[in-house]
Design a protein around this nucleic acid. Structure first.
Lengths: 137, 137
DNA sequence: CTGTTCGTACGAGAACCACCGTAGTACATC
DNA sequence: GATGTACTACGGTGGTTCTCGTACGAACAG
């Protein structure tokens, strides 16, 4: 039994790539999926860490786990266990150090595209410009 | 044999997405492939348009065609026929208008990663400490 | 201990993608 | 017309990714 774990509750450790292991292509690929991009946008919108169960994604739990794993292995998010929950935090500072401005411009672009899409597309029926949590970056 | 072509030489037109059709995910996906990223970097390094045959890629011509098609359909490059050659130009201004700073930060990131890779690979030690600092959480 | 909640592992199937080789089109030149 | 160049389309293969369902493990409240 490893008694070397100094922490109390967070014993299950997850493998994360170090800053030198993070590959640009992997980051871009991780961000090129709509579901993962929405996760990243949500994470960027709050200073807190969010549990996996917080996200309301149109896929099953298995698939959600898969997407979070891709994000973690690409070096985009950091995951830590906290009781039964797994908390997710954006590795914003590290990414900024490696690729200055990249994450920010992607988030801005995502917001711009969403605004563009919402502004010129939807006039079909009632619900106009749903004010569902505007991600102000 | 259609002789109805009104233009002189360069009339074979290729389908390009309009600015409103360009999707962020598609752009990120197009840039997440090493070969395509190197193409984009080459294009960004020159003000001229470059023929497909200019590039020295480690794949066959069929695959090269495939990659250029992906870039074109994502809205990253513009392709025009010029005699037998097909010239490729970056759609930099349009992308800048849609996603300000995105292309620039990706190019900067690619250059940074290449420098990092070239600089810290061979030497046993250098500036940065070990590749993986234990993830202190 | 029992049950609940949260997330993972394991298959497994469908879709996609990168890659290739061959055959074919379009253009320029001879 | 014949030859050569530049690129495309088609067909196919192997690998990866996305998705799911089910079964399992870890933490916690009774």
């Amino acid at each position: 039994m490893r008694a070397d774990v100094t922490d109390t509750a967070t014993t299950r450790a997850l493998p994360h790539p170090g800053p030198a292991e993070i590959r640009l292509e992997a980051v871009l690929h991780a961000l090129s999926d709509p579901i993962r991009l929405s996760i990243v946008r949500d994470l960027a919108g709050t200073p807190d860490e969010l549990a996996c169960s917080y996200f309301d994604l149109p896929v099953t739990k298995s698939t959600t786990t898969h997407h979070f794993r891709v994000l973690r292995e690409a070096g985009v998010v950091r995951q830590t266990y906290r009781g039964t929950a797994k908390m997710n935090g954006l590795r914003g500072e590290e990414l900024e150090g490696l690729f200055p401005g990249l994450l920010d411009s992607v988030l801005t672009a995502a917001a711009a595209e969403e605004a563009r899409r919402a502004g010129s597309g939807p006039p079909a029926d009632g619900a106009a410009a749903g004010p569902d949590r505007a991600e102000a970056v």
